[in-house]
Write a protein that binds this DNA or RNA. Sequence first.
DNA 1: GTGAAAGCGCTAACAA
DNA 2: TTGTTAGCGCTTTCAC
Lengths: 308, 308
Amino acid sequence: MQLAIDELGYRPNITARNLRSGRTGVIGLLLPELSLSYFAELADDVIAEAERHGLFVLLEKSGGDRNRELAVLSSPRMQLTDGLIFSPLGMSQEDAHLLPLDYPLVLLGERIFGSQVDHVTMRNVEAARAATEFLIQGGRRRIAVIGAHLEEVVGSAALRLQGYRQALETAGIPFDPALVSYTTLWHRSNGAESMRALIASGVEFDAVFGLNDALTLGAMRALQEKGARVPEIAVIGFDDIEESQYAMPSLSSVDAGRGQIAAIAVDLLIRRIDEESGSRADPQEILVDFKVVARESTSDVSATARRI
Amino acid sequence: MQLAIDELGYRPNITARNLRSGRTGVIGLLLPELSLSYFAELADDVIAEAERHGLFVLLEKSGGDRNRELAVLSSPRMQLTDGLIFSPLGMSQEDAHLLPLDYPLVLLGERIFGSQVDHVTMRNVEAARAATEFLIQGGRRRIAVIGAHLEEVVGSAALRLQGYRQALETAGIPFDPALVSYTTLWHRSNGAESMRALIASGVEFDAVFGLNDALTLGAMRALQEKGARVPEIAVIGFDDIEESQYAMPSLSSVDAGRGQIAAIAVDLLIRRIDEESGSRADPQEILVDFKVVARESTSDVSATARRI
DNA sequence: GTGAAAGCGCTAACAA
DNA sequence: TTGTTAGCGCTTTCAC
């Protein structure tokens, strides 16, 4: 039988099979932007994980735009896929009710919590607090923050800032708003601009906590331009993207569990896809592990807060 | 009528439509690795371009492995897509006959030339020559190369090395094999290792041409670790990935036309998809434009070749 | 056991 | 114009 199949070169028609079975074997992945290393690496992880389960990944990018996100969620395009892993950036908590419940969906990130949808995310507050505590243990007291978002309540920036403040509080260090620098986006250029502004403001600091690695690499570059030495000024980022270990000096960071997020998201999505349509299990909220990765940018050196 | 559609919430079944029409509205993109910035940025460009034409992108990664590339090419998975944009890395010229001719396919990159398949690529030789000439015009004579591949004839590394040699020849500078450093992969770590080996070899040089930006950023980092100053040692890369402008110092590079490659590849693929099955147009070989992007790493400074 | 038939939801062709 | 039907290629069911 197999011989005959090979000989005649028979190829099953996947589309017909899909029509019949109601499945496509494809999952969607909706991310803000692939040129941000964090998301590129996340996509890599998701594709690898999906492949292990015999699934393919249809990749869409939203550019972080709420309308584009909504358009993708409601478009018939998504019928090509059995489910969607979605990392919102434009949409926020108030939009939670706009998430489809009749379609297998797994949320990532920090924009929407407590919806009726499975959600995998990192321990932003705890991980940011660990990063800040690590700097404090290294003797730093004037820790600048790069990448805060104005008036944000949920979202990565707000949560990580919260972790930072908790660490200060625990250590009895007063919070100084002058040390917090705001950006809209988290590209390297925003980090560099923020750092230049911070330096221009004349505020003293002995360490920098960047709310993601791309930002932080830009900030570290701007610091060095002004003649500041790292780790005399200690610098730590967040996400632990691959290039952080090749920066000059190599950048300390927090590995917030990206690989684990990808694996769990795919697993949860598959579970939803396989679910009998009548019996919808309760939505799960999953938090993954994190760890501080110490590199040269936080090597111990005598610390003195100062103007640069 | 539209009212009735909206009211009843009618959604056409895309799969049924696909079965009927023989089209899926999805194109495949097969790349080595998304965590390499060049490919992440290329994927971003392809997705954006596909979207402009109402198409979706199913992303697959090969890890640069020939067997995985062949597996994807011949697997029925690809029936989910109307065509494929493929950047081979494991497959090479001898495998050209294994490319399917009965399926819309556009090749990228430098591994396979002159096949019966549409091909979009950069002017590797000319662009590498331009980068090298740029260094020579800056007064450099001892230009190290990072990232050559042993015994490669076609492929990005070989072509770019060829451009380097042409530039030397035109300038009457003898080619010194001791200045050429070989790697297997083009990650940042390989660039750093190569540079350390080059320095350990004791050879004198006053400039570095890295065959891609990731390599070059790693090499620049290793240079600086040894106390060498850039641009006293001038450094130029290839690809002009986004982060090169934020390196310290910012890295000069060659923009070899990535965005144009994405746009043309999608256009060609659509043309193939729309082609009547009987009338297969001749395969096209398209070369895109390049330009040298000068940044701090090649700012003019007095150059003296030396041991580091 | 092997084989025929129905139907997934759409669209193109045809009939009224 | 409007309505009906056949068929895309698969899988599941039911009859033999």
